[in-house]
Design a binder for these strands. Structure first.
Lengths: 220, 220
DNA sequence: GTTAGCATGTAAGGAGTTACATGATTTT
DNA sequence: AAAATCATGTAACTCCTTACATGCTAAC
């Protein structure tokens, strides 16, 4: 503890989450990330590499220096000897450490604005598989109320507006509202599904308990 | 010219565009902006006031110091005399100058990535009323191809993926794709409408020309 | 008389991007 | 042998946010 951890970007979570699935080198990591989140955001190398560096310094990942394959060594050996071992261009594979996994778990447990704001929600959702059911639910609900606040704010502001707007402004409002409403409906479905699963889980546990001879609550 | 103009944030356009409709003071300007663009982004005072300051320095807006209303003067007169005229808290109304209008027109003529990227498209669209038809069309098409690129990129990346994804990742992909596809359809409709209007406009001009006795192109 | 909303600002800093620089490997 | 793609990295910068600081005015 007190390791002066994370500066709270989404990138950190995205990187740790990806490396949790499988070790990767920077270039491919970025491709994966942009394939996974491409509809919501895209990261550049200019942010990715410094992030990896920082994670390395913090001990959350380890770098496996390019293994000396036959090909690499042979090609290198020809004009080596003078450059000690600097300037070696090859893949640097990063792997999550135990601390890294801990940190990832910590980040995935955070159910706050940092999880449901526009920039971060997608990333958090992408790793829901590794998130506790309860936290998932709170994030989905958090996002939903965030969006509903927004709808309220814009709608009441719109209602108070004296001058009527031109057709472009109007069309933008309409499209914006519709998009957000759609996402709210989507969230509603997801929340229902999550709740149903939670119920099923408790029911199963209840069933198991009912089967026990010493059950506390036989009926109810 | 060579006034070392604009650093290219969307805020500048949003402010100039709003002040073009009617003079406003900072506080209300922000409310308007967030009502207009609330579904897409929100600005804070911490960015708005410095922006206004900069626009003022650049001569794109003027500030009308709080007019000395009867109420203000009366209340102030009681304990005035010592504070010369500093620390006066009241509305500061900003108004667009001729240079400001020029600058706004310039910004609205830019049909490039700065107009159709995620952060800026909404703002540009919001002021389409003051944008030339041709520029409008190019921005809409630019945004559409931007989104289509994104769809392509994600879809081909998805197709190349070996391992099949968990249900959350899948659901995120599905929702993301669907949202972007929806926006593309929306853009298609808008583009069609714009084109129809353009055709109507040229037809009218052609009709007018055909009516002329000395028309160059009688048939074709 | 105190909370809530109106009104204006500043300092510090966050989370990235762009543009650049370099070089290896594969494809054409 | 040229072009494309793979691969890693840095410096400078951008645009905006957060948190703070201040004070007026209206409503309860």
């Amino acid at each position: 503890m007190a390791v002066a951890v994370g500066k709270g970007g989404v990138l950190e979570l995205a990187v740790l989450g990806s490396l949790n699935e499988t070790p990767l080198h920077g270039y491919e990591l970025r491709k994966r990330l942009n394939a996974l989140l491409g509809m919501f955001r895209a990261f550049s190398y200019g942010s990715l590499y410094p992030c990896l560096r920082q994670l390395l310094v913090n001990g959350l990942i380890t770098e496996e220096p390019p293994e000396e394959t036959a090909a690499t060594t042979a090609a290198q050996a020809a004009r080596d000897a003078s450059p000690p071992l600097a300037g070696r261009r090859s893949k640097i594979v990063y792997r999550l450490t135990a601390e890294g996994k801990e940190r990832l778990q910590h980040l995935l447990t955070q159910a706050g604005p940092s999880a449901w704001e526009d920039e971060s929600f997608g990333v958090h959702f992408a790793f829901f598989r590794h998130t506790e059911a309860e936290v998932r639910l709170r994030i989905l609900e958090g996002r939903r109320s965030r969006l509903e606040e927004r709808l309220d704010a814009v709608r009441t502001a719109l209602a108070r507006t004296r001058e009527r707007l031109d057709s472009y402004t109007l069309e933008l409002q309409r499209h914006g509202l519709e998009s957000v409403e759609r996402e709210v409906r989507w969230l509603n479905e997801l929340i229902d599904t999550e709740r149903a699963q939670a119920v099923r889980a408790t029911t199963e546990r209840a069933d198991a308990r009912d089967a026990e001879p010493l059950s506390d609550k036989p009926n109810e």
